[in-house]
Simulated scan of single mutants.
Amino acid sequence: MANEKITAEPRTEFGKGAARRIRRADKIPAVIYGHGNDPVHVTLPGHATMMALKHGGANALLDLQIDGQTQLALTKAIQVDPIRRVIEHVDFVAVRRGEKVTVDVPVTVEGEAGPETLVVTENATVQLEVAATDIPEAIVVSVEGLPAGTQILASQLDVPAGAELLDDPETLIVNVTEQISAEALEAELEEAEAEAGIERELSDEEEAEQAEAEAAEGDAEGESAEGDSTEE
Rank of each mutant, 00 (worst) to 15 (best):
Asp67Trp: 09
Lys76Phe: 05
Gln156Met: 13
Val31Pro: 06
Asp38Lys: 15
Thr108Pro: 07
Val86Leu: 05
Ala148Lys: 13
Asp38Cys: 12
Val141Leu: 07
Ile78Gly: 06
Glu88Leu: 13
Ile152Arg: 03
Asp134Thr: 03
Gln65His: 10
Gly111Ala: 12
Thr150Pro: 09
His35Asp: 12
Ala161Pro: 10
Ala132Thr: 01
Thr108Gly: 10
Pro39Glu: 13
Arg84Asp: 14
Glu137Met: 01
Thr43His: 01
Ser142Thr: 09
Ser142Pro: 02
Leu44Cys: 06
Ser142His: 07
Arg85His: 13
Thr102Gln: 04
Val126Ala: 02
Lys100Ile: 05
Ile87Gly: 02
Gln156Glu: 15
His55Cys: 10
Ala113Trp: 07
Asp104Trp: 04
Val140Asp: 06
His41Asp: 06
Ile32Gly: 00
Ala58His: 02
Ile139Trp: 02
Gln151Glu: 15
Asp63Gly: 09
Arg96Thr: 15
Val119Ala: 14
Glu129Ile: 08
Asp38Gln: 13
Thr117Met: 12
Tyr33Trp: 08
Asp91Tyr: 00
Asn37Tyr: 15
Thr70Tyr: 08
Gln151Cys: 14
Val143Gln: 11
Leu118Met: 14
Pro39Cys: 13
Thr121Tyr: 06
Thr133Val: 10
Arg84Ala: 15
Ala161Val: 10
Gly114His: 12
Asp91Leu: 08
Pro160Val: 08
Leu153Arg: 06
Leu153Glu: 11
Leu53Gly: 03
Ala73Ile: 01
Gly149Trp: 12
Glu99Pro: 03
Tyr33Val: 04
Gly46Gln: 03
Ala60Arg: 04
Leu64Cys: 07
Ile135Ser: 00
Asp81Met: 01
Val107Tyr: 03
Gly46Asp: 05
Ala30Phe: 04
Pro160His: 09
Val101Thr: 05
Arg97Glu: 15
